[in-house]
Lab assay of single mutants.
Amino acid sequence: MSRESDVEAQQSHGSSACSQPHGSVTQSQGSSSQSQGISSSSTSTMPNSSQSSHSSSGTLSSLETVSTQELYSIPEDQEPEDQEPEEPTPAPWARLWALQDGFANLECVNDNYWFGRDKSCEYCFDEPLLKRTDKYRTYSKKHFRIFREVGPKNSYIAYIEDHSGNGTFVNTELVGKGKRRPLNNNSEIALSLSRNKVFVFFDLTVDDQSVYPKALRDEYIMSKTLGSGACGEVKLAFERKTCKKVAIKIISKRKFAIGSAREADPALNVETEIEILKKLNHPCIIKIKNFFDAEDYYIVLELMEGGELFDKVVGNKRLKEATCKLYFYQMLLAVQYLHENGIIHRDLKPENVLLSSQEEDCLIKITDFGHSKILGETSLMRTLCGTPTYLAPEVLVSVGTAGYNRAVDCWSLGVILFICLSGYPPFSEHRTQVSLKDQITSGKYNFIPEVWAEVSEKALDLVKKLLVVDPKARFTTEEALRHPWLQDEDMKRKFQDLLSEENESTALPQVL
Rank of each mutant, 00 (worst) to 15 (best):
S56C: 06
I248D: 02
L99H: 07
Y159L: 15
V7D: 10
R148M: 13
T43L: 11
D111K: 09
K141F: 04
K214A: 12
F115S: 02
T172S: 04
I157S: 02
P75Y: 13
S53E: 08
I221M: 07
S187P: 10
K179T: 08
F144V: 02
K141H: 14
E4L: 07
R148L: 06
R180K: 15
F256H: 09
G23Y: 02
G116H: 01
S164F: 01
Y113E: 02
E233D: 04
C231T: 02
A215Q: 02
E64N: 03
E70S: 08
D218Y: 06
K255T: 05
E122D: 12
E107C: 15
S228T: 02
Y123E: 15
T205N: 04
G37T: 04
N184T: 06
P21V: 06
Y220T: 02
H143G: 02
L71G: 02
D111W: 14
E271A: 06
I157Q: 02
S12T: 10
A17G: 06
Q20K: 08
Q11T: 11
F115I: 13
M46S: 13
E149I: 09
Y136D: 11
K141N: 05
E4R: 05
T138R: 04
D265K: 15
N110A: 04
F201R: 01
G116F: 00
I258G: 10
P21Y: 09
G232W: 00
G165Y: 11
V7W: 04
S67I: 14
S33Q: 10
A158L: 01
S210F: 05
P88G: 04
Q29E: 08
C108A: 15
K119M: 10
V25A: 10
C243Q: 07
E122H: 12
T65F: 08
S57P: 03
E107T: 13
N154M: 12
S252V: 09
L129Q: 09
A98P: 14
M222F: 08
N171Q: 10
K197Q: 02
I250R: 14
G165D: 10
H143P: 03
Y136M: 07
S187N: 01
L71Q: 03
S28A: 11
P92T: 14
K131I: 11
E84T: 08
G227D: 08
S210Y: 15
S31I: 08
I38V: 13
K131R: 15
W114D: 14
L96V: 13
D162W: 00
S252N: 12
E81F: 10
E127H: 15
S140R: 01
L204V: 15
T168M: 01
I157G: 05
A158Q: 03
I248W: 01
K224F: 14
C243R: 03
E173W: 13
L99I: 09
L236G: 04
K249A: 01
K245E: 08
K245I: 14
S223T: 00
N185Q: 14
E271H: 04
Y212C: 08
R254V: 01
L236F: 13
G178V: 13
D134I: 09
E79C: 04
A237H: 00
S24V: 02
S39H: 06
E263N: 03
D218S: 07
S223W: 12
H13T: 10
C108E: 04
V198P: 01
K177Q: 09
G14S: 13
E239T: 11
S57Y: 03
D118Y: 12
S55N: 09
S67R: 01
Y113W: 04
E173S: 08
F256C: 03
A17S: 05
L129P: 06
W97S: 08
G116T: 01
A247G: 06
N110R: 06
V246M: 02
D218V: 05
I250C: 04
H13M: 08
A264T: 02
H13V: 15
A158R: 00
L60P: 07
S32D: 07
S164D: 01
P85M: 10
L226T: 06
S67A: 08
P75Q: 09
S12A: 11
I146T: 01
F202A: 07
R195F: 00
Q36F: 09
Y139N: 00
R145L: 15
K177C: 13
G23W: 05
S42G: 11
A247T: 00
K141A: 13
E84W: 07
K119I: 12
S35R: 10
D207Y: 07
L99F: 12
G178S: 15
I221L: 01
K135H: 06
R181H: 10
S260I: 09
A104R: 09
L268P: 01
S260P: 09
L129C: 03
S252L: 05
M222R: 01
S52R: 04
N196I: 10
E107H: 14
L268A: 11
V200C: 03
F256S: 03
R262D: 14
H13L: 10
S40G: 13
L268T: 03
R117V: 01
N185E: 04
G58L: 13
S52I: 03
Y220I: 03
T272I: 04
A104C: 06
K153H: 01
L60R: 02
L204M: 15
S55H: 06
S2D: 13
Y156R: 04
S155G: 11
T43Y: 12
S24E: 11
S16I: 12
G102I: 14
R148W: 15
D207S: 05
Y136A: 05
Y72T: 10
A247E: 02
R217F: 05
A158S: 04
